[in-house]
């Protein structure tokens, strides 16, 4: 009796998960399809993977995506953590103003953030390229780091930092040895969020740069029709993300 009661909800969850994975599975399947059409499956091949990894445009786009994400993550994590410590120690009014302004890129639609930063570059006379994309990415990654670290600082026992100072630690040393280790989970969460936001970004990059990251490449290619090469790249990206998540989860379990 009890088992039957559970059956319907489980079926519902299964259906939703099937819906979420259906296009991904279709993409993986078609990345191995002999013909480039999306019709019936005609035969197994890996030629799309070969041509995708020989396609200079795809390789360039991948290099831009990952290098921007890497640099933007490191910069925004360090910069954002320092900022959070600074905000936490500021007056209430300053905290209020700064956090509200920092919410703006998170709450504004990406397209609005994108065009507004584009206007800045256009009228400052800065040619849009790799650097402008990087600056835009740092801008939208920073809020995620700041808002991941701030709550951890608020949970912190202030006596510990003071104790370190009373025992003769210099403020910088106390910060590095007492505060930073305790807010580490927040810093790591912030860094992971920043990395995924940067990897996934389309709208802001699209307006702030003439370089193509993976999203921009897919956008311009897909507008011209379906390319099996994109299926191959998607499959690689999907398994890459999957592997990354498994590693993160594995590390978490090990720590516990």
């Amino acid at each position: 009796m009890k088992k039957k009661k559970n059956g319907l909800p489980i079926l519902y969850i299964a259906l939703i998960i099937a819906f979420l994975y259906l296009p991904i599975l279709v993409m993986i399947l078609y990345s191995f399809n002999e013909t480039s059409a999306t019709g019936p499956f005609t035969g197994f091949t890996v030629k799309w993977y070969e041509s995708a990894f020989r396609n200079q445009k795809i390789l360039d786009a991948l290099a831009v995506t990952f290098s921007i994400a890497g640099i933007a993550t490191v910069v925004s994590t360090v910069f954002g953590t320092l900022t959070a410590i600074g905000i936490f120690n500021s007056r209430m009014l300053t905290q209020k103003i700064v956090t509200n302004v920092t919410y703006v890129p998170m709450l504004n639609p990406d397209i609005v953030t994108g065009i507004s930063i584009m206007l800045l570059f256009v009228y400052a006379g800065i040619p849009r390229g790799y650097m402008t994309m990087l600056m835009a990415h740092i801008t939208f990654c920073l809020p995620y780091v700041i808002f991941s670290v701030l709550p951890k600082l608020r949970q912190l026992d202030p006596n510990l930092y003071e104790a370190a100072l009373d025992l003769g630690a210099r403020p910088g040393y106390a910060l590095g040895r007492v505060v930073i280790p305790q807010i580490m989970p927040g810093i790591i969460t912030g860094a992971l969020l920043a990395f995924t936001m940067s990897i996934d970004d389309f709208a802001i990059s699209f307006f702030t740069s003439d370089e193509a990251n993976l999203s921009i490449y897919v956008y311009s290619a897909a507008k011209r029709g379906i390319k099996p090469e994109i299926n191959a790249i998607s499959t690689v990206v999907f398994f890459g993300v999957l592997a990354l998540l498994i590693i993160i989860n594995f590390r978490k379990k090990k720590e516990n």
Binding site: I16, I17, L20, Y21, L22, P23, I24, V26, M27, Y30, A37, T38, G39, T196, I199, D200, F202, L214, S215, V218, Y219, A222, I226, I230, N231, I233, S234, V237, F238, V241, L242, L245
Partner: peptide, 25 residues
């Protein structure tokens, strides 16, 4: 449920073109 959202947004939308596009799946 959250895993697909970690995959590129463009690629996820593109995948639907394969399914519901002309002569698609």
């Amino acid at each position: 449920i959250m895993l697909p959202t970690w995959m590129n947004f463009l690629l996820r939308t593109y995948a639907w073109m394969t399914i519901i596009g002309r002569n698609g799946l």
